[in-house]
Design a protein around this nucleic acid. Structure first.
Lengths: 259, 259
DNA sequence: GGTCGATCTCGTCAATATGACGATAAGAGG
DNA sequence: CCTCTTATCGTCATATTGACGAGATCGACC
């Protein structure tokens, strides 16, 4: 194995075999999705440092030596949004359904012009947060509607590709899981959940059939009893998310229509 | 950001900010699944070097500085099995359906006792290969039935966890995709495809309903015309895999039964 | 108070998919 | 020819979906 100047790190342990060991920088990047004003939005920061200074980017940072990938992702999420996620998600509670999962690893050779750096992308789904809270390190963090991003070409590094993958993962997971509740507050109505689906998928759903599907799936919703009127019409029953995670059979996604 | 002795690499580019940059070793590990003698098998190698010398492990190795993660995975796959995958999979052809996809990144702090090394796991599905071909670097490579692995505790590093995730990914993907054809040769019968499902899921399926489902799904199978008799019964029609990748609606997975 | 508009919730009905299983087709081997 | 084995087609009850009607219950307005 040859060593390539400029990307080769130090072998720090003599027991490491010399069979291709190379050191890489490792970061985590977050695709934090939420729904604001009936639009699917992603949290972006404006970079202050080179490379891509001034460009929009996904929030992220280097993985510290004393933390796992998931811990680094939770730390970045907390720094950017103030959301503190416990190590283990609380099962079946009134927790507002913030969701965090690993998306994929990205390791194109020239994805960072400085050195060989690979990133582990995470996908977070969160209810509409009160304020982006321009975090400790981010120059300016803001939720940007995904549909409003011009050609995605303005994003730093390969973040456009990561964002596309994250949105597609979210769209796919709504089909066969109950993850849409992660976009909702602790208590929500069936209509609010339906608008989550319509917003993420970009397609209208029949309110009657949707109501039948979600209320008829055991474990999807857990009624809390009272109801509320938020939209001027008949008051809607409030629910919490249940303990079911998978949908069998899946919810069918209609083809998206142009808004 | 403090530097921790033993895991810290060299910053090779002076423009890199000192905000937590740490160097990691990066490997790819492969979960190569196939079906042999009606059993789901995984390719394992016996380690010759410390750590975990003598233990079984997933095949893998360090990512070289001049290759992407996917390229490293394809290289390892070729070294272990002799399967040469093109950069882009040929769409809708007589290619025996070898499939390779990224599984997940694993970055537990102490997963390698030598240094901070993280691995990007890939999942490969292949038809029954003629011979494991004890590759160039692997001391001994062999397909081991997944069900025969005692407690999975004998695998090196965190490979038991990776293997479990890979098998579960494969099981889930058979439900909503046409990926089961990746376990079949270029031409196969409906019964062979059904045995793939039964083997991976560990549950019997009704032959008549399965036949109706796969032949009734447009793009799943493409008839090649002639038929063949392989099992002593009525000859079965031969098919190639079609161009469809997703199943709508999904195939239902019955609960697994103990063999 | 009555009307209107909006929204929620329950029902109906045809079309489609599934699970269970009978029946027939077409080979091998005696 | 008979039997055994497997492949393929068909039937029927049940479950799910898509399309849509209709009543329920609020706020707004006159």
């Amino acid at each position: 194995m040859t060593r390539v100047p400029g990307t080769v790190g130090c072998v720090t342990d003599e027991r490491l075999p010399d069979d291709g060991y190379v050191a890489y920088g490792v970061t985590v990047d977050l695709v934090i999705l939420t729904i604001r004003a009936d639009q699917l939005c992603v949290l972006l920061v404006r970079r202050g440092l080179a490379p891509f200074a001034g460009a929009l980017a996904l929030p992220g940072g280097f993985v510290r030596p004393d933390e796992t990938l998931a811990q680094a992702a939770r730390r970045e999420l907390a720094e950017e949004t103030g959301l503190l996620l416990p190590e283990l998600p609380p099962r079946g509670s009134a927790w507002p359904g913030v969701h965090l999962e690993q998306l994929a690893a990205y390791g194109a050779i020239d994805r960072d012009p400085r050195a060989r750096i690979l990133t582990i992308a995470f996908l977070a789904l969160a209810p509409d947060l009160p304020e982006p809270r321009g975090g400790t390190d981010a120059a300016a963090a803001e939720f940007v509607p995904v549909a409003a991003l011009p050609g995605l070409g303005e994003l730093a590094f390969d973040h456009a590709e990561i964002l596309t993958d994250g949105v597609e993962r979210a769209r796919a997971k709504l089909e066969y899981s109950t993850l849409a509740t992660a976009f909702c507050p602790a208590e929500f109505t069936v209509a609010e959940l339906r608008r989550v689906y319509e917003t993420v998928w970009g397609a209208p759903l029949d309110a009657r059939n949707f109501h039948r599907k979600v209320t008829g799936t055991p474990g999807f919703l857990e009624p809390v009893g009272h109801s509320t009127a938020r939209d001027g019409g008949r008051p809607a029953a409030l629910y919490r998310r249940g303990t079911a995670e998978l949908l069998h059979p899946a919810m069918r996604r209609p083809p998206a229509v142009a808004p």
